[in-house]
Design a protein around this nucleic acid. Structure first.
Lengths: 104, 104
DNA sequence: AAAGAATATGAAAATTTATTCATATTCTTA
DNA sequence: TAAGAATATGAATAAATTTTCATATTCTTT
């Protein structure tokens, strides 16, 4: 077969692919996605997230950092605690579709 | 602060988290996501995907296997070629939301 | 049936990511 | 301001993933 014809993603497309791949990669990890699930129900401090996911404080903090850097969660302080919440509703929308997809 | 109160995801929730994390993980890789992008425009054989992504045949085949196992793509034969296409429209929907999310 | 084209695959190497451990930082309150 | 609680972080280790290389498989055509 003749494969002279080449096609390529545009630069913009490449960038978009990069961004989305990064986003999916961040959400494609059990603990991080679990955190997002927990936060869908409301704000939670780190300790609560550790309980929820039955994971060490250090691990959860590291994963929270990844989520922060991806702008998926945001923080505020409440006394001695740092309280995490979802950065915006987009994530919930994103998850909704994914939930539908896997519900089969 | 009092952290007597524990909460946990239900078994079903855990399973859902697992499934979605797996799905996102598969899509959270540049080359695989690139393949999906290419296939959104229509069926493509392996060689075409290699060109599109400027990647080796072996690499693309390996990634296609991952996509196949995740039921994201399906195949058919056309003479000597294996032609890949998206398994269903869900993926397109999923991507649509993600595209919106990163378009900022 | 032999040769060639297209794709797949196993195993090794390279790279990335997740996890742990020890410790630092930041805030609060006695 | 000292002590304690909650969280963050750097570095090391463990584990998983991606990529390559060599080769196998499958189909087509002569």
């Amino acid at each position: 077969m003749n494969h002279e014809f080449h096609f390529e993603p545009t630069a913009q497309h490449k960038e978009e692919i990069d961004k989305i791949a990064k986003l999916y990669k961040v959400l494609g990890e059990k603990n991080r996605l679990g955190i997002v699930y927990a936060l869908e129900k409301g704000k939670r401090c780190v300790h609560e997230l550790c309980c929820y996911l039955d994971a060490s404080q250090s691990l959860i903090s590291h994963q929270l950092k990844v989520l922060r850097e991806a702008k998926i969660v945001s923080t505020s302080r409440r006394g001695n605690e740092i309280v995490y919440s979802l950065a915006d509703e987009h994530i919930t929308k994103l998850l909704k579709i994914a939930k539908e997809h896997v519900a089969e």
